[in-house]
């Protein structure tokens, strides 16, 4: 279970609150969608969970481990896919995957099995010997996804994962996310694509100007709305009023 307890992050000496007292509880085995307009605080929140930005206040706890007090342990429980796949573009694909696997301490047999499975699934297996700078944006995204999936994580956290993926890979990724939930892992991802959130997520939260303005199951949110609306309408209404 992932708990965000009162996390706050501000820039410019507290003038701009990028994330303002966010509280969320995400259960194990749940796919959680994190929605919001550009600049709402999605990426900042995600970066605080994965250890890239230190919260000014509040704490983040994953399965009883405080992410910031016990960061090494927490990191071995988290796999992160950022929105922009900036990776070592002078390495080739397999070198990058081996590097990541070494950092997670994954055995040769295990990495072989997983790399072969996921790179075949994402159709990049034949490019593993190529230098990463020759990859397209989507291929880099798939390589980062593969590297994240090498680890036996408790929390899979993705920032805008569908951007740049072809429809088939996008479908496969959704399947993977679903399967991980069945195994009791937590999936947390941010997205702009409301249909994806609508179809895939057990629960969602909408963030705007750093504050959570709505969260819950999608049918719950629909019930709360004036009339039974699509998620898009709910989203537009909520974020417009702010």
């Amino acid at each position: 279970m992932l708990s965000l307890r009162g996390i706050t992050k501000s820039y410019n000496k507290g003038q701009i609150k990028a994330v303002d007292n966010v509280n969320l509880e995400i259960k194990s085995g749940e796919i959680f969608g994190f929605l919001g307009p550009n600049g709402a605080g999605k990426t900042t929140t995600i970066k605080m969970i994965v250890g890239l930005l230190k919260p000014d206040e509040g704490e983040i706890v994953l399965d009883g481990v405080n992410v910031w007090d016990n960061s090494l342990m927490a990191k071995s429980m988290i796999s992160y896919v950022p929105d922009n796949p900036e990776i070592y573009d002078r390495l080739n694909g397999i070198e990058y995957l081996n590097f990541i696997a070494d950092m997670y301490g994954i055995s040769k047999e295990e990495r072989k099995e997983k790399i072969e499975y996921y790179t075949s699934l994402f159709n990049i297996k034949d490019s593993l010997g190529d230098i990463i700078s020759s990859y397209s944006h989507g291929m880099k995204q798939k390589l980062v996804l593969t590297s994240a999936l090498l680890n036996e994580m408790n929390l899979f956290i993705l920032d805008e994962p569908m951007v740049g993926l072809d429809p088939k890979s996008s479908f496969n990724l959704k399947e993977i996310m679903r399967k991980m939930c069945d195994e009791g892992k937590t999936v947390f991802f941010s997205t702009h694509v409301l249909e994806v959130a609508e179809k895939l997520c057990d629960r969602i939260a909408i963030i705007n100007n750093g504050k959570i303005i709505a969260h819950g199951r999608i049918d719950q949110l629909r019930d709360d709305a004036k009339e039974k609306q699509s998620l898009e309408k709910i989203f537009l209404e909520l974020t417009d009023n702010e």
Binding site: I94, N98, F99, A101, D102, M103, G105, I106, S107, K108, R111, K112, I115, E116, D126, S127, L128, G129, D130, I131, S133, S134, Y135
Partner: peptide
Amino acid sequence: VTASKGKGKKKDLDELYIENKAYIS
């Protein structure tokens, strides 16, 4: 940048899975 697009030499992938200690890696 030259990419093989899968047509390049297909090495036995088995050789490619090399396990190293973190600091060596």
